[in-house]
Design a protein around this nucleic acid. Structure first.
Lengths: 207, 207
DNA sequence: GTCTATAGAGCGATAGAC
DNA sequence: GTCTATCGCTCTATAGAC
């Protein structure tokens, strides 16, 4: 007697999502075509739209899911009650690993916001979350105590982000200029895990 | 007797180029349409193609021109025989001003290199120019003298670039999170002209 | 140089069979 | 759930009049 096979497909949707991430990443949203994605996933366009309704829905589904999870994890980190310096090292470490695994996220976010008016950020209330985060408070308190220089938290946050995100977005350029293969690039990113916090702390403690 | 009017149009091409910069910047290469560009320029598609042959040629014409000029200016700066710290301040200052005026350049460059295999960089021989630049040599010499810590020049260069380029690429995000209008963003960038060199120098001099 | 009109390719999406 | 076939639209590019 044959085994039951009852439930439909466990992972067609995941197969499509993974294919879509890959294609969106290399082609951008506009540059990607539904035919490309379907081919990469080994299915046809009709099936893709059966599961995700449209190209735009498919994109949003990937985008929201990855970014939402990531943002939640960063917010938790920002609000942790660890000392400032430890926190900065942890942020850099976790953020770097996440970005190496999910390079499409910053590229999508940057592209989206150029045209879309920050809709996702508004939905997640990013502005208030940053402004009221324990991290922001810590920077102010430490400055008052005189352990670091006084600083606009936005500059610290965007210096961190620039240093973390830029290498991922500019990966092909870095690999070319530094003659780095896959392993070489990973090595480069591991080195940055040390350099970035050192640089931020050196700045905060100087003067 | 009527004045001569001899030469054809002085600035149709410039009008089209400016329109194209604007549209490519907000829509990306794939997202932009030739109709949009033509409308923005106040001409029709046929005229646009009369001057620039195709969408791709138009893009390359803008891209090559702006990036080539910019790269030339940076190379001159890297090779100037000014002291390291002065040079870093000058690079940040000039680069920031350029990027505020030409935000489409990094966006184009990053998008191009994700798909195109660094063709422009190879043509300009960026790798060798960086490796043999006086700036790279300076970092090594100063480290030997013990005035700064020993460091892989690539990390310095990409930290500089990340800090300079990221705010331009992420401008809508920064403006949203910081509640900044046009003037507020410029102010933010002016502040960074001071913070970025201080941060790099604090790192190089620490330990 | 500049226009109108349109050819020809490729796109996203869906109807309908299985 | 998955397929084939195709619709209707928009895109880039160009022919041809002025």
């Amino acid at each position: 007697m044959p085994r039951k096979k009852e439930v439909v497909n466990p992972d067609t949707e995941n197969k499509i999502k993974e294919a879509a991430k890959k294609v969106f990443l290399s082609q951008g949203y506009e540059g990607a075509t539904v035919r490309q994605i379907a081919q990469e996933a080994g299915v046809n366009v009709a099936l893709m739209n059966y599961h995700f309704q449209s190209k735009e829905q498919l994109f949003k589904s990937i985008y929201m899911e990855s970014f939402g999870a990531f943002f939640g994890s960063i917010v938790r980190l920002l609000n942790e009650e660890t000392p400032l310096e430890v926190k900065i090292w942890k942020i850099v470490d976790r953020y770097t690993d996440f970005l190496i695994e999910n390079p499409m996220i910053p590229i999508f976010v940057l592209a989206e916001h150029r045209k879309d008016g920050n809709s996702l950020f508004k939905e997640l209330n990013v502005r208030e979350v940053v402004k009221t985060s324990y991290f922001t408070k810590q920077l102010q308190e430490e400055a008052e105590k005189g352990t670091i220089r006084p600083v606009n938290p936005l500059h610290v946050i965007f210096s961190l982000m620039g240093n973390l995100i830029f290498p991922v977005v500019a990966r092909p350029i870095i690999s070319y200029v530094g003659s780095l293969d896959e392993a070489g690039f990973r090595q480069f990113m591991e080195e940055r895990k040390k350099i970035i916090p050192e640089m931020i702390m050196a700045y905060l403690k100087s003067r």
